[in-house]
Amino acid sequence: MQPETPQYAIETRDLSIFYGAFEAVKGVNLNIEKGKITAIIGPSGCGKSTLLRAFNRMNDFVPTSRVKGEILLHGVNLYGKEIDPVEVRRRLGMVFQKPNPFPKSIYENIAWGARINGFRGNMDELVEESLRGAALWDEVKDKLKQSAYALSGGQQQRLCIARTIAIQPEIILMDEPASALDPISTLRIEELMQELKKNYTILIVTHNMQQAARVSDYTAMMMLYEDTRSGTVIEFDKTDVIFTRPTDKRTEDYVTGRFG
């Protein structure tokens, strides 16, 4: 491994995440490749979301949470003393499990994030470009001033993706982005991800193994330690390797549905 080589978008070093005394995620080492989609899979409660939320420091809002180890973006530890979590979140956009647009117009949903981040330029263009980027433009171009709440769940989720790419992050974190959506909307999101990976590195948490197999280039398999109930990555490789010839027996059981 060559950790400093620039092809990695983000890396973790012995990353452990605690809630109080409980170690929810233990000793994770991941090198996420640039311009690829990396899926994090594993059974419920194994710390997939916790791990994902550590990347953009969303766990900071849980008062008892604490991190050991490092997450390196361009070789800079995101948990360093001098690091501003606000800036971190701008560079690592996030799409949540349930679509959570702001109770504002479609236009404002995108413009707001851009504005607070000091966007200088033509806002209308940015909004259009972001909506196009999220494959939503054609559906909403005539109703930009309408409330985002009037959109369907799938459209709302694509709007959330649009507002994320509007602030030009390097990496997009997706926390089961399609789990609250119907199959057709899910498909559209997956197609969109393929488009997005041309420009962005994507990390996606999913409990849907078919989805992981369909969309991702790399897959990280997480599992709980039996004794401590801490989650960790037991295997991390190219997706086809994970799904066809995993080295770990537990991974094989899980991806073939024999887990449990």
């Binding site: 979140r89 956009g93 949540f96 959570n100 702001f102 994030g113 607070i116």
Partner: peptide, 13 residues
């Protein structure tokens, strides 16, 4: 809901 606040944080607010 918390999710709204989180959405804002995730945008770098």
């Amino acid at each position: 809901p918390r999710s709204l606040r989180e959405a804002a944080y995730a945008m770098g607010a």
